[in-house]
Design a binder for these strands. Structure first.
Lengths: 207, 207
DNA sequence: AATATGTAAGTGAGTACTTACTTACCTTGG
DNA sequence: CCAAGGTAAGTAAGTACTCACTTACATATT
């Protein structure tokens, strides 16, 4: 392994430290992670961390910025629903979250830790991205109500019902460890949830 | 305030320490709480804690025991659904969780912290109480399927769909702070979720 | 082209303080 | 009296953070 050594530009080093920190924070929380560990993970001295970030807390702020200005997630969500209508739209949303959780539970852990430890991180993220997602679903739901497909109901609350099914399932599987004793194929999960939700929202098609 | 002073029996003191500890752990997590704080909260010296519990970790174990051997929660759930059928049964379940979360988010926080910090607590609790609840709902769902009211679907997964709606809503409201910018009357929430779920599970009553 | 200069990147060895946990010693009630 | 309840005063190993200093490199001057 050639392992070319150090001397990065400030920006590179900062990014690298944030990356190492967010990985550790997601695993062990802010309080549970020492600056020493972060330094070791980044392969630098502790002092270097404090050259770039004047307090440990600033690492958290930097993570917020990175995540909130990172549109990759939003982009993927948009990709996985674009052009889709009706049941397919909801399947797209469900599939997106199930996939994301599975490939990177770290981010969800970071959010949870943030919420529990009372940092602003989760607050800011939830208020912007969380509500955005609710509104996105609610918008679609309103459309289906206007089209006479769905019964009229509180659209935001309905959106949260659907998101709740999906997100709680993912959280329980990955973070509470349910997957060790409860497992179903992801496609089946998505299909079942969409089915329950869509049928539940539809107008009765009685005689 | 009369504030009768000290000298409790070992058992009393242990219980008191566990109580203080679990309150603090639920607020700041295991790593985020120092034994000094626990001692202060309990109004005793740090050394006394270690007289009764040989390591900090044992406090966690004691909390597990207390919670798992405490049937109060289960009892209240049973109370709030007893004799109920159909929609009323699900309303009872939803109401139970919404109420519980509202009056004591601390316990949920303890579970979440436990899961994130990788302690056995959450594991044990989820495997027993969590799956019990899924099974309870699934049992009811199976009954409704046999009766021809519900479409045939994976009963456990359906149970998790319903629990997901309710629990994610509660978690988001209380722990992620959604309630500061999203609020609905609890009865409406329960009614809406039950309606979506029940209609979604029902057999089409077509001609 | 070779050299001096200014500065950002990086560090080893601290600091002051907190952590979980101990020791040696009182105090009380049965 | 004496065992159990309780504590003040430790300790070794962390903790976040600082200091005085070295290194690497881009640029300007010779």
């Amino acid at each position: 392994m050639p392992m070319k050594k150090k001397r990065m530009t400030g920006r590179e080093r900062k990014a690298q430290i944030v990356k190492a920190a967010s990985l550790l924070f997601s695993k062990k929380g802010f309080k549970g992670t020492s600056t020493r560990e972060i330094a070791k993970a980044a392969g630098i001295s502790e002092a270097t961390i404090f050259k770039h970030f004047s307090r440990k807390d600033e690492l958290y702020s930097a993570i917020i910025d990175t995540c909130c200005n990172d549109d990759e997630g939003r982009y993927h969500l948009m990709k996985s629903i674009e052009g889709k209508e009706g049941r397919e739209f909801f399947k797209g949303v469900a599939a997106y979250f199930i996939e994301r959780f599975d490939e990177d539970p770290g981010f969800a852990r970071l959010l949870m830790f943030g919420a529990l430890e009372g940092r602003r991180f989760t607050d800011i993220f939830m208020k912007s991205r969380g509500m955005d997602t609710v509104d996105l679903l609610a918008g679609h739901i309103k459309g289906l109500m206007r089209a006479g497909v769905f019964k009229r109901r509180d659209p935001e609350l309905s959106a949260r019902a659907f998101l709740g099914m999906v997100l709680h399932y993912c959280t329980a599987q990955e973070i509470y460890g349910f997957k060790r004793f409860f497992d179903r194929p992801p496609r089946k999960v998505a299909a079942t949830f969409v089915d329950i939700f869509f049928n539940g929202m539809e107008k009765e098609t009685g005689p």
